[in-house]
C-alpha cells in the first residue's frame, strides 16, 4: 500500500488508485475547512461531521473528475456550501432574522474583545441561510465577494448587499447583547 505524500497531485492520483491512506491524507488536509463550514452554518457538531463525511464520500466517488489541488479545494467548498444550504431548506425550523428591515452598515468602531467571538458565531448562525453562508465564506474562508458569488451561483451584487446587510444586523444584535 502506498502512503500519502505532501504532494497533493500525487496524493490525488494515489487516492484515485484506491489508496486508503492517500485519501485519508486528503481528508485530513481539508477536513477543517469542510467541517468548519458545516459547524458555523449548522452549529451542531454531529450534523457538521455528518455533512463533512458525506462531502468526502462524494469526493471519493468523484476523484476522477478532480483536476488539481486548487480545483479540489474549490470543489469541496462548493459541495459543502450547497449541502449546508440544502439542509437548512429541509429543516426550516429556525426563525431567521429579518434582513429587509436592516439598514446598510455605517462605519462603527467597537472595542476588540476576543470574548465576543462565541457570541458573534452564534449570531451568525441565526442569519438566514444564504447571508449566513456569505459571512462564513467571507470571514472563515477569506473569499472575495466574486468568489462567493461563483460558489453560491448568485449575482455579485446580491452577495455584496447581502454581506452588508448581514454585517449591519450582526453589529446591531451584538450591540444589544453586549449592552444587556
Amino acid at each position: 500500500m502506498l502512503t500519502a505524500t505532501a504532494d497533493p497531485v500525487l496524493s490525488l492520483s494515489q487516492a484515485v488508485a484506491g489508496d486508503q491512506t492517500a485519501f485519508a491524507g486528503i481528508v485530513r488536509e481539508h477536513q477543517a475547512m469542510v467541517y468548519s463550514i458545516g459547524w458555523h452554518f449548522l452549529r451542531d457538531r454531529a450534523m457538521a461531521e455528518e455533512m463533512a463525511q458525506d462531502v468526502f464520500l462524494h469526493l471519493y466517488r468523484n476523484l476522477g473528475s478532480i483536476e488539481s489541488a486548487r480545483h479540489l479545494t474549490h470543489w469541496l467548498r462548493k459541495v459543502a456550501t450547497h449541502r449546508c444550504i440544502d439542509q437548512a431548506r429541509r429543516r426550516k425550523l429556525v426563525r431567521w432574522s429579518d434582513l429587509e428591515h436592516v439598514r446598510e452598515p455605517v462605519a462603527a468602531e467597537s472595542g476588540r474583545d476576543p470574548m465576543l467571538a462565541g457570541l458573534l458565531a452564534r449570531l451568525v448562525a441565526g442569519l438566514p441561510p444564504k447571508p449566513r453562508m456569505m459571512v462564513i465564506l467571507r470571514y472563515q474562508e477569506d473569499l472575495e465577494p466574486a468568489e462567493i458569488a461563483d460558489l453560491l451561483e448568485i449575482p455579485l451584487g446580491t452577495v455584496k448587499s447581502g454581506l452588508h446587510r448581514a454585517l449591519a444586523l450582526l453589529r446591531s444584535k451584538m450591540e444589544k447583547e453586549t449592552v444587556q
Binding site: 477543517a32 467541517y35 463525511q53 462605519a107 468602531e109 462564513i136 470571514y139 472563515q140
Partner: peptide, 22 residues
C-alpha cells in the same frame, strides 16, 4: 474594521473529532 476582525476571529476553522479522516 475591528468588527470584521472580530468576525474573522469568531469564524476561525475548527477540526472535527479525532480519527475523522481515518
Amino acid at each position: 474594521n475591528e468588527f470584521e476582525d472580530q468576525l474573522r476571529e469568531a469564524m476561525h476553522r475548527r477540526e472535527p473529532g479525532p480519527g475523522f479522516a481515518g
